[in-house]
Amino acid sequence: MRAAVSRQHRWWALVALTVVAVVLLAIMISLAVAIGEIAIPLSTTARAVSNRIFGTSFELNRIHQGIVWDYRLSRALVAASAGASLALCGVVLQAMLRNPLAEPYVLGISAGASTGAVCVMILGLGYGALTLSGGAFIGAIVAFLLVGVLAAGAGRSSERIILCGVAGSQLFNALTSYIVTTSANAEQARGVLFWLLGSMSGVRWSDVYLSVPVAIAGYLACLFHARALDAFAFGTDAAAALGIAVRRVQVVLFGITALMTAAVVSMVGSIGFVGLVIPHAARFIVGPSHHRLLPATALGGAIFMVFADIVSRIIIPQQILPIGVVTALFGAPAFAIILFRARRSV
């Protein structure tokens, strides 16, 4: 009885929390649209959006309209959906691999994507048929498969998978450096930095149409497997004994994380630590049950990424920092804290 009451109580707290998170996300996106070299009042923003979506005809400065709609709003939406996708990948990988450090960046998937992009950009692989994003996409999938094969050979224990990820990262980073130093000119080298650090510049509406559906579809697929993710807490045998079709769930969820990561990296480059920081923060707030953790992680990832994008644009006047630098500034200390806590609990 007491359990039921406390659960109901938590249910209301969760609704409140969800509302707060959604409002916070809306505020972040509005700020992201308002803030920049040309400050645009929120009222102008609202009118510009309304002009495009509801067909209203508020009189607006054409430049303002363009900045809001073509530049900043699309950028904020891509940031939000990419953040949600990366954070979801982190939470799913952590549950499946039973390792608190698992996330796409640590597992070398982002590094693979960078190599793929560099192959197209500098070596001209794909003979023009392959775009930069296509190359990144293929690189991410290859990296995922490579780390998977390495890990299967190394015995699948959760520490080893992280080591395989580190080995994979090193390999792909070495390949990238090799290609850049032997074949790239100065301008190309600067372009490569884009992939290594992650950047939101160059994002357009076409990216929104890919990244938002990917985030939503990925989220729904993960939510569908929430109970299975819970059941993995004591390992694959325990999950199977609880009636989970372990092999099928693994194939589906690893596949989804690979596709989500590949899609994100192909648009905005390799952005680290979002998949690490956000799931842990979300777990801290809503607890370990994936029915609550997945929505919290998705919203948290979206908010964090838009926030990081804003910071990247205003922290140095007249200059835009790569967003990956900002997420790393928050992420690296979090990584260290998680390591310390993991040690203490052993």
């Binding site: 390792n99 807490a233 045998d237 004994a241 370990p288 609990s345």
Partner: peptide
């Protein structure tokens, strides 16, 4: 139902 010989978790359950 099966109770394994050793089964533990790092998750804060």
């Amino acid at each position: 139902a099966f109770v394994e010989q050793q089964a533990t978790t790092d998750t804060q359950l």
